[in-house]
């Protein structure tokens, strides 16, 4: 590719190639301070290419390609090239990772113990993990939790947090302006702006944590807590995993180990301040 950028996020090395310089320049800024892939070798490759040769100049739009692709994925306008690269990296992880059980969950750590938050898109798990990451917790990741089948630990995957719509203002009030990437308006998910994780999240990206609590947050209702049994938690996490089926027996062992060893709760919250209070209270009462 004409333009390329390589980066390591926790245990995973990526190489992003692009037909245009702009997405690569944006990535260099967003990922400043991240290490290169180990031994210079990336685990996954993402390519941003024009849909037709002339579309490199004429109404340029980026098709996300790579080791793993979705056959019916739509191209994104070049102005959303950074988002296209991020989506491509997510796709490689979701479809290609085999070393860990991937849970669609955000994750933060304190005292070596991890709090996992899983839920549907829009449940607020990214915002909650980003806020906790500024308030005494270490951000392990806002998108994927990497559960190690052999040891049961969670490996950090501290990508820049993808803030959407209202969450952008919430975090802009919380962090220095240089921690935020460019505003990407009008994406399929609304406005998006990336948040660079705090310095300790990057400095300690090779330090795993032991799962201690699982939450399934839901934004928009009055504060409520409902303990969840191991079976319900197991079923929900198989649905939240992108590679449970391909991992086979290792995935079964990893997930049954997680749900039997860690308390799980569904929580409703009316606003982020209430959510943070709830998380801190449950952590103090429950996490083991």
């Amino acid at each position: 590719m004409r333009h390329a950028f390589s980066v390591r996020i926790g245990p995973v090395g990526f190489r992003v190639g692009s037909a245009w310089p702009q997405p690569i320049a944006a990535m260099r800024r967003l990922y400043a301070g991240y290490p290169p892939p180990r031994d210079g070798i990336a685990d996954f490759t993402v390519r941003l290419e024009p849909t037709r040769p002339w579309r490199r100049w004429l109404r340029p739009s980026a098709m996300v390609r790579g080791d793993f692709t979705l056959p019916d994925a739509a191209p994104l306008p070049l102005a959303q090239g950074l988002l296209a690269a991020e989506m491509g990296m997510n796709l490689q992880m979701a479809l290609g990772a085999r070393r860990w059980l991937l849970l669609h969950a955000s994750c933060v750590e304190r005292d070596g113990r991890a709090l996992l938050m899983s839920g549907h898109s829009g449940a607020g798990k990214s915002t909650l993990s980003a806020l906790l990451g500024e308030r005494g917790w270490r951000l392990l990741g806002d998108e994927f939790a990497l559960l190690d089948p052999a040891s049961g630990v969670i490996h950090p995957f501290p990508r820049p947090v993808s803030l959407k719509n209202e969450a952008i203002a919430v975090m802009a009030a919380e962090v220095a302006a240089d921690r935020l990437g460019p505003l990407i308006p009008g994406t399929p998910k609304g406005d998006i702006r990336h948040l660079r994780p705090a310095a300790d999240a990057l400095a300690r990206m090779d330090e795993p944590a032991t799962p201690a609590m699982l939450l399934f947050p839901r934004f928009g209702a009055s504060a409520d807590v409902r303990p969840m049994g191991a079976i319900e938690t197991f079923v929900r996490l198989t649905q939240a995993s992108t590679n449970y089926v391909v991992l086979g027996e290792a995935g079964f062992a990893a997930l049954t180990g997680l749900v039997r060893g860690v308390p799980a709760m569904a929580i409703d919250y009316p606003d982020t301040a209430a959510a943070i209070d709830l998380v801190e209270r449950l952590w103090a009462e429950t996490a083991r």
């Binding site: 049994g229 191991a230 079976i231 197991f234 027996e249 079964f252 062992a253 049954t256 749900v259 039997r260």
Partner: peptide, 14 residues
């Protein structure tokens, strides 16, 4: 492989 919890059984069929 089976794991029991809450009166139910999670079973993995190899």
């Amino acid at each position: 492989l089976s794991v029991e919890a809450e009166g139910m059984t999670l079973l993995y069929h190899r």
